[in-house]
Every structure is written in structure tokens, then in C-alpha cells.
């Protein structure tokens, strides 16, 4: 199994996280996303015509999109069925809803980070304000979850919804967004970094 990977990509990090939690063996193919824009060159476009990372190759299968890869890996390699609760229709619905929410975090918080860190030209105020709106929704949700005695986005154990929402939320400081207004999110980030098998990435410190 091979992951086309960029070390600073939160979307690639989602796959590294699930692979670490599931103790999967895989290789990485480092892609020069920045400054080389290798993901937009002809060779890479034959692997993913959308010119985006991550891409996973497993045998003959080539699969793109972070959330899709999470679904694939959880379904194929998680014998406990906990990261993708396939046997529980209600949970499946909830997790799918937050997977889609995670994509919105990418288009706002990750955009602000690309602007502030790598100089991407975009409307950073709109990106930050969009991220704050989403974080407020996540904060209210996680607050209610805590009232129910639950620590995670859906159900009573971490799922790929937590993995999908984690990277760009934890990295939002890179894009000039503070988590101070969101104490429940901060507690969730802390619980997430304490999960057995957790791996860090640059911008997320986790010395315990």
C-alpha cells in the first residue's frame, strides 16, 4: 500500500493517522506539493486528474480524496468496525454528516493556513470567518456530547469523523485562527492527541 503524501498536508495527515491507529503497513511517496507544485504536473495528473493529495494505491486500486480513503481503509482493515460503525445506520449517518463537515473545515481553515504560511492568494478574512462559524457549530456539538457523557463526535468511541475533523482544526493557529473561544474543541483535541497510536505532524505538538 502506498500513500502519495505531503508532510505539511492535513488531508494526507488524516490517512497517516488512521493508518497509525490501525497499525497498517504502508509506504509513502513524497510529493513536492510546495514549492514544486508536483501535484499539478502531467505525471501526477495521470494518478489523480483533480491534481490533489492524498492518493492511496492499494494493489490495483487507486483512490483519491481524504474522506474516501478513510472510508476505504476503515471498511477494509478495521475488523472491530469501530472507526466506521457500518453496522449502525444512525451512526453511519452521523459520521457521514461530519465527514462532509470536515471538507468545509478544509475549504476555510486550511485555506487560511495556506494563505498565511505559504502565501496563497485568497480572501483570508472570509476563510477565517468561515472557519469560526464552523468551529462554533463543532463547539456547540461537542459541548452537548460532553453533557451526554461522550467524548467523541459521533457515538461513544472515536470514528473517522474525528480523524477527518482533527487536522485542520488542530492546525488552525497556523492560519491565524484561535481555539481560545472553543474550550470544548480544545478538550476534544487534547483527548484526540492522547489516543493510543496517535502520531503528530509539524504544527501540532503533543509532548505529554
Amino acid at each position: 500500500m502506498k500513500l502519495y503524501d505531503y508532510v505539511l498536508s492535513g488531508n494526507c495527515y488524516k490517512i497517516r493517522l488512521l493508518a497509525a491507529f490501525l497499525k497498517l503497513d504502508y509506504q509513502t511517496e513524497p510529493v513536492d506539493f510546495y514549492p514544486g507544485k508536483q501535484h499539478k504536473n502531467e505525471e501526477f495528473l495521470t494518478i489523480n486528474p483533480l491534481g490533489q493529495l492524498p492518493v492511496l494505491r492499494d494493489g490495483d486500486l487507486v483512490i483519491r480524496d481524504a474522506q474516501a480513503i478513510l472510508l476505504y481503509l476503515a471498511n477494509k482493515y478495521d475488523s472491530e468496525r469501530s472507526w466506521w460503525p457500518a453496522n449502525n445506520a444512525l451512526r453511519v449517518g452521523e459520521v457521514a454528516m461530519w465527514l462532509s463537515f470536515a471538507d468545509q473545515i478544509t475549504s476555510t481553515a486550511s485555506a487560511a493556513r495556506l494563505h498565511d504560511m505559504l502565501g496563497y492568494e485568497l480572501d483570508v478574512d472570509a476563510a477565517r470567518s468561515g472557519a469560526n462559524t464552523l468551529f462554533r457549530v463543532l463547539e456547540d456539538h461537542l459541548t452537548d456530547r460532553e453533557f451526554d457523557g461522550d467524548d467523541w463526535i459521533a457515538g461513544d468511541c472515536p470514528t473517522i469523523a474525528d480523524i477527518a475533523c482533527f487536522p485542520y482544526t488542530a492546525l488552525c493557529g497556523d492560519g491565524g485562527i484561535s481555539l481560545q473561544p472553543f474550550p470544548a474543541i480544545q478538550r476534544w483535541v487534547r483527548r484526540f492527541t492522547a489516543l493510543p497510536g496517535f502520531v503528530a505532524m509539524p504544527g501540532i505538538n503533543c509532548i505529554k
Binding site: D140, T143, D144, F147, D148, G149
Partner: peptide, 14 residues
């Protein structure tokens, strides 16, 4: 339930 009461109060804060 404690949790339900806290949710009511939290919704009031919202």
C-alpha cells in the same frame, strides 16, 4: 437527567 438539564441551560446561553 443532569445532562438534559445542562443542555437546556446551554441552549439558553446560545
Amino acid at each position: 437527567e443532569l445532562g438534559e438539564n445542562l443542555k437546556l441551560i446551554s441552549n439558553w446561553a446560545i
